[in-house]
Amino acid sequence: MNLRLNPSMIYKLTTKDFLLFRPFLVVYILICALAAGVMIAPIEGAYYLGVILVITVSIGSGIHFALTSVIIEKKENQMSFIMGLPINATDYAVSKTVGGMVVYFLNWLPMLVITLSLIYFSHLPNGLIPISILCFLQILTGVVVVLCIGVGTGSEGFTIVMVVIFNILFNLFLSVVGQLPGISEFIQGNEAVFNATFFSVFGIEILALILVLSLTLFIKSRNACFL
């Protein structure tokens, strides 16, 4: 097992991915702000349209980042350029999964803050805040899973299948979590309620995220070489 990591190189590779994604990151945050703006528009049905748009932008940006940073980099042979640098396969995997999560987080966090702020300062009920946080966390976890599948398999096909599964599971997540009594009872309320149900779902999502990352890095650290 290769556990000797090169933190300096992991940081440089992550920064490189951030710099490559930065122009899109700004665009996605702006689109998300517009989409969240639709949510609070005083028009019938605008809220639902806005929610769909915010979810689409946050998932889409994550998939865009995961595919370009892992799959397209490999497909366009830029990974060969990276493999020639003083790193090992584990450094690369850490930079693409943990580093990738950090880069996406820089996209995700402003989107979350914008969405929550608009809910908080608008006519929308503050009861929407807990479920919004859970949905965003679910999207972050899903993007990390896609990154891990991309790094783990190196396969464009498997990664795209994972994207499809992620979308299906997200819809399932929305309907299941939205019907949980501890969540559904408070959605229309004026106060954001962070109860045991919220923290249970939150905890499960964080655990899933840690588990997926750990498993991927454990598997990749067993490879002495890239190829």
Binding site: L20, E76, Q78, S80, F81, G84, D91
Partner: peptide, 25 residues
């Protein structure tokens, strides 16, 4: 090698036909 690949790649310049740089940069 491969156990010292990180160390070795600090001292070795490697370029191959299949390598590509980032087109957008």
């Amino acid at each position: 090698q491969p156990e010292n690949q990180t160390l070795v790649k600090k001292e070795v310049g490697f370029s191959s036909e299949e390598m590509k740089l980032y087109g957008a940069k």
